[in-house]
Design a protein around this nucleic acid. Structure first.
Length: 748
DNA sequence: CCCGTCGTTATTTTT
DNA sequence: TAACGACGGG
């Protein structure tokens, strides 16, 4: 038996059919935990080993860096030659493509990628009449327009933003962006679509290059990505169409807000004629009762293809729904649960705490820190959003592309050289003016030199000094010519490639004065900026000290702004704190989904299609759990510094009876919506006059404590107990049956 | 141009 | 509640 036969033999019939399928386009509808990554990776190995497909002609795209890495690792484990396949995220593929066809796309081959923040700043520069806030909103709409592949002159632009000014703002932004030579995230997909659409030659070249194209998490692709797939796979010239295989699950589509178009998967068969469909419905991840809970939620959605997951792992324990008074209690509950299981030998890494918004991680971090429970927060963007980190990255980006207006503005006067906004504007406008008059764009370094004589003496000296430094450092890392036409890092730049990039970054940090500047900031406000810069310097150690090495370094950071890459030496056994969105593609033995309250999850104002998306998000969360699932809901939560009384999430009422084992006291809203459920504590609360009178949220006056509010109710050995939080900070419990006389209900 | 104070405002979700 | 922007004094 060959290796490949061995790989195939562990698959179920549907998986095997998907792997050996060839010819027509293939749509794999893969339910959560149905082994789709195994199918894709086996298929890559199979094509190489059995079908003699050249590895380099295989393109597999995913959405997250993590997923891409996992796919590549697993494919290589099955078939070493898979290392030659292109296994990337959509955006990193776009970046690769744009560097290759920079001229056709009208960008600098050494472009860097502007994030949302940079976009907003550039909008302000392009349309100065806008406030920062308006610019940020416009930037967001521009990004969305690009997700839909709409240009400033598109008539359909109104569907993204109907304001009459929008097309002009978009056009002005676009002009300004193009003059920097840089791109934004949307460009990484949209520009390749435009280049492929307009250049037959490029299309043919790509068609000969990629013979097999696979897309994972296809349900989250947007219109631009769909068109990219169409253009890469269609026919052109004499080049035959590539084999297309997409994998997705309409129930897990959770990125509509970012332009993801569920229609892409729902109508795939119309756009790729002759499509064959394979369903993977056997779930190897979760136990049956967890899957039942997931299904009881998602079946409330109307807009779905519909599928039923079959559990292959047996019944398992009943998912637990816990009602808690406050968010602190919620954090304490999680800590208790995790700590107790750790005592029984469960490693911390088996646990994941899921939440709707990043801000919710704070309470867990505080509690876990206190209890000495190790944890890692996944996907928090904090590190690369820090000012000092953005400063250093901007300096590096500027060395690579001296037309980068935003990088220039960020670093030119830090530390202060007397170059204020006026001088910056003069330099930038000078460069833009000159660029429009000549073939070769004018770099901002050159503009600094040319402007130095026409400004105040202090500013002039600063500009000259800066230009000298930028030229010297840029020369050291190599010039653009030294990499053009080659992607490998073996191009000899000034220094030997064996030297580490971290030396160069360290030099930049020192010579620019950025490190000194932030050291003094640390002294003033006791921050950790210098240490953060050092961490960034250290992370550059993995790259060679060449221009290409620097480009790769910036690329990696720009396309994966999560901490993991900068933080590989993290604790090996730790609880995972993660947003629901970030859990896509992950699994954990034990999962706690927190904050199941209306307004938080689902978020307020969600209706119709948006509400269905929230429901799918809940479904994604539930199906991450392998063995144990806990869900928590609080009756009180601090929101924007105010204390709010919460109702349980409507999703909880949608689950049928017996789906969850309920702990704590279910609020009245849950009870009345659920009707008379079996085996549930406090089931008689709606008919208990005490519970009706003394319910959560009621305002109270107490002779000794003053004003307060009921934050929790419970039934303890038959007695109805209320917990009251008073305005003086005290919290106390009372038995209304006996103590009603000392408690006054305050009427508004 | 720098720094401090005060008032206001914001919280999805991410490549 | 915290973080950020506007404003004014040095």
């Amino acid at each position: 038996m060959t290796d490949t036969e061995a790989c195939l033999s562990v698959l179920n019939p549907e998986q095997r059919a998907a792997v050996v399928h060839e010819g027509a386009p293939l749509l794999i509808l893969a339910g959560a935990g149905s082994g789709k990554t195994r199918v894709i990776t086996t298929k890559i190995a199979y094509l190489i080993a059995e079908k003699n497909v050249a590895p380099s002609s295989i393109l597999a795209v995913t959405f997250t860096k993590k997923a891409a890495k996992e796919m590549a690792d697993r494919a290589v484990a099955l078939e070493p030659r898979a290392a030659g396949a292109q296994i990337r995220t959509f955006h990193s593929f776009g970046a690769w493509f744009l560097r290759k066809f920079a001229a056709e796309a009208g960008v600098d081959s050494s472009f860097t990628v502007y994030d949302d923040d940079d976009m907003a700043t550039l909008v302000v520069k392009a349309v100065p009449s806008l406030s920062r806030q308006e610019a940020a909103r416009a930037a967001h709409r521009i990004a969305l327009a690009k997700d839909y592949c709409l240009m400033p002159d598109s008539v359909r632009l109104a569907e993204v933003d109907s304001s009459p000014d929008f097309p002009r703002i978009y056009a002005a932004y676009e002009k300004r962006l193009r003059s920097t030579g840089n791109v934004d995230f949307g460009d990484l997909i949209m520009l390749p679509v435009l280049v492929l659409g307009s250049s037959e030659q490029v299309r043919v070249q790509m068609h000969y290059r990629f013979r097999v194209i696979m897309v994972d998490e296809y349900q989250d692709s947007n219109v631009a990505q769909f068109r990219l797939l169409q253009l890469l796979s269609g026919t052109a010239g004499n080049a035959p169409a590539a084999y297309v295989c997409v994998v997705g699950d309409d129930d897990q589509s959770i990125y509509r807000f970012r332009g993801a178009e569920v229609q892409n998967i729902l109508t795939f068969e119309e756009h790729f004629p002759g499509t064959e469909l394979i369903r993977l419905e056997r779930n190897y991840r979760s136990t049956a009762r967890i899957l039942a809970a997931a299904d009881s939620i998602v079946r409330n959605n109307a807009d779905r293809l519909g599928k039923t997951l079959r559990a292959e792992r047996g019944e398992g324990g009943q998912p637990v729904l816990v009602f808690l008074p406050t968010q602190e209690d919620e954090a304490a509950f999680c800590a208790d649960l995790i700590w107790k299981s750790h005592g029984k030998g469960t490693p911390f890494r088996d646990w994941a705490v899921l939440y709707r918004t990043n801000a919710q991680s704070l309470d867990f971090e505080t509690e876990f820190l206190h209890r000495k429970i190790p944890y890692t927060v996944v996907g928090s963007l904090k590190f690369y959003e820090r000012e000092e980190i953005k400063d250093v990255l901007a300096f590096l980006a500027f060395l690579v592309n001296p037309r980068d207006e935003l990088a220039f503005r960020r670093i030119i006067n830090k530390p202060a050289h007397g170059i204020g906004e006026k001088t910056q504007d003069a330099v930038v406008n000078f460069a833009r003016e000159k660029s429009s008059q000549q073939e070769v764009p004018c770099s901002l370094v050159q503009a600094c030199r040319d402007c130095a004589g026409n400004t105040a003496r202090k500013a002039g000296t600063g500009l000259t000094t800066f230009a000298l430094l930028a030229e010297e450092l840029a020369a050291e890392i190599g010039t653009a010519e030294q990499v053009s036409g080659t992607r490998s890092s073996d191009t000899a730049a000034g220094k030997a490639a064996s030297e580490k990039l971290s030396f160069f970054v360290e030099k930049v940090v020192n010579r620019s004065g950025l490190l000194d500047y932030h050291v003094s900031q640390d002294e003033i406000s006791g921050t950790q900026r210098a240490a953060n810069i050092q961490e960034l310097v250290n992370s550059a150690v993995l790259y060679p000290c060449t221009r290409q090495g620097l480009l790769d370094f910036l690329d990696t950071i720009e396309l994966d702004r999560t901490m993991e890459s900068a933080n590989d030496g993290q604790v090996s056994d730790a609880v995972t704190l993660i947003t629901l969105h970030n859990t896509k593609g992950l699994e954990f033995p034990k999962v706690i989904i927190t904050g199941l309250e209306n307004g938080i999850f689902p978020r307020q104002d969600k209706t119709g299609g948006d509400l269905e998306e929230e429901r799918r998000l809940f479904y994604v969360g539930i199906t991450r759990a392998k063995d144990e699932l806990y869900i928590t809901s609080c009756s009180v939560r601090r929101l924007y510094g105010r204390t709010e009384y919460m109702q349980p999430s409507q999703f909880l009422m949608e689950a049928g009876p017996g789906v969850f084992k309920v702990l704590g006291t279910p609020p009245a809203a849950y009870m009345s919506a659920a009707g008379n459920r079996d085996g549930m504590a406090g089931a008689s609360d709606i008919s208990d006059p005490l519970a009706v009178k003394w319910c959560t949220g009621t305002r109270i006056y107490h002779d000794d404590y003053g004003y307060g509010q009921i934050v929790h109710t419970a039934r303890r050995s038959g007695e109805y107990v209320i917990t009251v939080r008073f305005e003086n900070g005290n919290t106390a419990q009372f038995l209304p049956r006996y103590q009603a006389h000392s408690l006054l209900i305050v009427k508004d």
